[in-house]
């Protein structure tokens, strides 16, 4: 079971991160993919601040765990999780995000922003690249893991399942997929058109070990990461994290209008108030 102190530490970080996300969104005069950022905030805090062995002062360390954001439109969420870990400066992100020649773009670019493992943005491509990283690590007998964060919507892409098939067939036990299972695509809900269920069974059928969890329950996130099988496991692992798109902001939650958006001053204030109330509520329940 997760240490309650560690749970609390990470919850506070996630709370801080949500406010930073909203404030950045409010300060930027363009569109931010805020819905899916808020759905994976807790997961990214769990990864960058607990589960992954990373060191912001040694970003090329061969022993570091690798992280690929396959849902590249969630870049800003990754920037802020990394910023809280000490990689980047928040004010710099706010000042330059999305602007001409910025290192902090709508989708992460490895060449422009050292610390990012892979340039992404075209959905469905991350897992195959992560499979390549996992093959390389295994062949060199390196002990790190490769984590690949995917949105559930992008798993409509065929390449995801080609890569899943390869990872399962080649028994890449050092590969961990994480699904931000917010059950929404950009313009619809899961099941309106395409139906992903039975989702866990699909991954099992591709020879993956599956862990299902609540992607907003920090205790469960910590437990899932602490209890990953050894890298010599015969199967890759996928964490299917049930989440809420727009989590923490009442007018964004489960609202297809907030896949991406721009926040007015009023929206920003309301969103911050929601996040504060949400966090206070969770704390009083704890």
């Amino acid at each position: 079971m997760a240490d309650p102190k560690e749970v609390k530490r990470l919850e506070e970080l996630a709370y801080e991160m949500r406010k930073k996300l909203i404030n950045l969104c409010g300060a930027y005069d363009g569109v931010v993919h805020i819905g899916g950022d808020l759905s994976m905030t807790d997961l990214l805090i769990g990864l960058y601040h607990h589960g992954m062995r990373v060191d912001p002062s040694d970003i090329k360390s061969p022993t570091r765990d690798r992280f690929l954001l396959s849902k590249g439109h969630g870049a800003v969420c990754m920037y802020i999780a990394m910023c809280l870990r000490g990689y980047f400066d928040y004010d710099e992100i706010v000042k330059t995000y999305g602007r001409l020649d910025s290192a902090y773009g709508m989708h992460p670019c490895k060449i422009q922003l050292p610390g990012v493992e892979c340039s992404t943005g075209s959905l469905g491509q991350g897992l195959a690249i992560a499979v390549g990283l996992a093959f390389s690590a295994r062949q060199r007998k390196e002990a790190h893991r490769v984590f690949c964060m995917m949105g559930d919507g992008e798993t409509c892409e065929g390449e995801v399942w080609e890569a899943a098939n390869t990872a399962g067939s080649y028994k890449l036990g050092n590969l961990v997929g994480i699904i931000d299972r917010n059950k929404q695509l950009m313009t619809s809900f899961d099941g309106d058109y395409m139906r992903l269920e039975p989702y866990a069974d699909k991954w099992r059928a591709f020879n993956w070990d599956v862990v299902e969890l609540d992607g907003h329950d920090m205790g469960q996130i910590i437990d899932a990461l602490d209890n990953l099988p050894p890298i010599t496991n015969e199967k890759p692992t996928v964490l299917i994290a049930s989440t809420i798109k727009g989590k923490g902001v009442s007018f964004m939650e489960k609202n297809v209008g907030w896949h991406a958006g721009a926040l007015s001053k009023e929206d920003t204030e309301k969103a911050i108030a929601d996040i504060e109330a949400d966090y206070a509520g969770e704390r009083s329940a704890a």
Binding site: C118, L127, I129, V131, G132, S136, E159, N165
Partner: peptide, 23 residues
Amino acid sequence: DRFIDTGVAEQNCAGIAAGLALE
């Protein structure tokens, strides 16, 4: 251990190659 046959899956094959080259 340095040979990968992805089956009939060219997109995946290109993606895996990218991952290998990143390393």
